[in-house]
Computed example of a mutant assay.
Amino acid sequence: METSEFIISGDTAGIEWRVPVFRFKGRDAKAPSVYLQAALHANELPGTALLHFLLERLRKADADGAILGDITVVPQANPIGLAQSHFGEMQGRFDLGSRTNFNRDFPLIALVERETLLDDLDRRSAADRLKRRLLHAALGADLVLDLHCDDESLQYAYIDDAFWPEAADLAGELDMQAVFLSDGESTAFEEAVGHAFKHQGGDRLKSVPGRLAVTVELRGRRDVYPDMAKRDADGVWAFLVGRGVVADPAYEAKPYAGPALPLDNIEMVRAPEPGTILFHRNIGEPVKAGDLLATLITRPGAADGTLEVKAGHDGLIATRSSARYARRGDDLMKIACHEATRKDRKPGTLED
């Protein structure tokens, strides 16, 4: 195993950021290469715990000569966000200097343009340099997993339909309860990788066998427990074995039996007015159109001071907000539905 660091100089004097990187050299040049990262949103830590335990297995596999393909692991990808604390709470999703999401505004380039990502880095902000270094590293691999989590959530993933259904093996090994098929039209990290894979130097490819770029949502932000992280690490390990990246004679594949739904089928349940949230339904529960999901106490104490929020479609509650007060328009839930929920959804991500 080789350890190194990306060093990102700060935008003010005396500051620099260090990103630890772990690399394993495979012994089979024909085996797929893999890039794994976690905590690009710095306050989403289930993936960091997963990779900590996965690295234990990879070090042993390295000593046993069981690593076939090159593996790069970045267990804590965003030291800038990790250091941002406002009134005692980490602000790991948005860069406070530029007010941009750490998982947006990645360059959309063809794979043959990979080296241009490192051009003129000194002229760019620290957050932009970090994004370009991470993307450059990822584009050197065949299989790319970006580990995130939601607020309160089932285990699910965003996967470009160019990689589906080949990526069903990952969904099965990680016991995912849903897959959201993205349209590849945003500037998020995973979709920037997918864009490069689909535009390798010529026309856009409709499918890219042997390649993968995926955002894995490892349940909710508070789901950081040793047994859970070890099970997830075992799932990623099994995925690597199944893809021929590591060798393990005990491997048995787990099929995926859950739904794979386009983003048009996701109902974003939002608060029509501000208020205290009283949830009536939990993640993982099926709902029917018209079912009561939450009550908002909009005017506490008033006889008519509540507002009911109901499901617009049949489906499965995939995520729920951990907040118990909503501003007007805040997301309360995502429901994975059996049909399209709206006709006017713009391509791209579901949330900022």
Rank of each mutant, 00 (worst) to 15 (best):
L278E: 15
K131N: 10
Q177K: 15
E339Y: 02
T215V: 13
I15M: 14
A318H: 14
R299T: 00
A229I: 04
I7N: 12
Y256M: 03
G88Q: 11
V19H: 05
H199E: 00
Q84R: 11
V144Q: 14
D119Y: 07
I277W: 02
F279D: 01
V208G: 04
A302H: 15
G65C: 03
Q155T: 01
H195A: 07
L296M: 07
P274A: 04
D248T: 09
A253D: 07
Q84H: 12
V112R: 11
N78R: 04
E267N: 14
A63E: 15
L96K: 12
P107M: 02
P75R: 13
V246G: 09
F102W: 12
R222E: 05
F163M: 05
L50W: 00
V246R: 11
G315I: 06
R104E: 06
Q37A: 12
S33G: 15
N103M: 12
R342Q: 02
K254I: 00
R93C: 04
A13E: 01
N103K: 14
G235L: 07
N101H: 11
A238W: 06
A61V: 01
D227A: 05
A247G: 08
A49W: 11
S321N: 01
G275F: 05
I7P: 11
T72Y: 06
D203A: 15
G202R: 13
K60F: 03
P255F: 00
L139M: 00
T100M: 13
G140D: 06
P165Y: 03
G235A: 11
R124S: 05
D183L: 13
R327Q: 11
G275V: 04
A77Q: 01
P259Q: 01
L135W: 02
A336C: 02
E267C: 14
P107S: 08
A289V: 08
A138S: 06
L174K: 07
R104H: 05
T100P: 08
M333D: 08
G284V: 08
F22A: 12
L205Y: 08
E285N: 12
L82I: 04
G290K: 01
